[in-house]
Amino acid sequence: MSAPFATSLNGDRGFPRWGGFKFAVVRLELRRQLRNRRTVIFTVAFPIFFFLIFGLNKVYASERVGQGNVSAFIMISMALYGAILSTSNGGATVSVERLSGWSRQLRITPLQPGAYIAVKMATSLVLGLVAIVAVYVVAMFTHKPSMPFALWIATGATIWIGSLLFAAYGLFIGYLLPSENVGQLIGFSLMLFSFGGGLFIPLSQFSHPLRVMASYTPLYGLNQLVHYPLVQGSFNWGWLANLVAWLIIFTVGAIWRFRKDTARV
């Protein structure tokens, strides 16, 4: 027994608090996800690129909208787009982890399944914040968007909190589909949701039946809500209803698949 490891033979060891959740784990998850260049380009560079194309347009960028201008409106849209890409991709990493057996490996550690989800959510939120701040900072340097400073904070915070909806979506899809290509599916579906939500083209340009259909898609409510501080006017409770309904659908879906995945058979 003269080994460097002092193997204690009494079993009175405790187990970690918070089910094993630690911010240092979130930091390692972040480092890992930021190492994937494709993810960074898609979630940070693309929304900035879109803002530079549409948000600086000489024809309409300076037109007034509510408390600010169209450029600010587009900045909010693109920050939202980047945030939902980031959070849903963050959630969808569980798919690769299931495929590689990493989630099984984690099950022979004290990490509790709920804490694992919390790590994923926290990682997604940080990635979402990076995407939002990146768009806002680049937009600020163009001096084109105009709105009161308080609204920069208010809209940014609303986007950030709202993007949790898509962290749940990413987890749901990640647990549903055990595929390395889940990222592409996420990207494609978010593109559709973004059109449906009116992120890229104002819904007023859609035909009436299309507009009605669009109002039931997952980004519709959130997109209206994040623009509300800027646009103001009459508040439609249907936006909130849309958001809550989809939050319930994605969360219940994620919990359902998650339970199935972690069930011991």
């Binding site: 060891r13 630690k22 390692l28 480092r31 890992r32 590689s100 057996g101 990493w102 550690t109």
Partner: peptide, 21 residues
Amino acid sequence: GGLLKDLTVAETVAYTGLLFE
């Protein structure tokens, strides 16, 4: 299986170590 390809050896060990009390 049970390993993440996009972590280094040292990061994998650090990650796992953090999960224990």
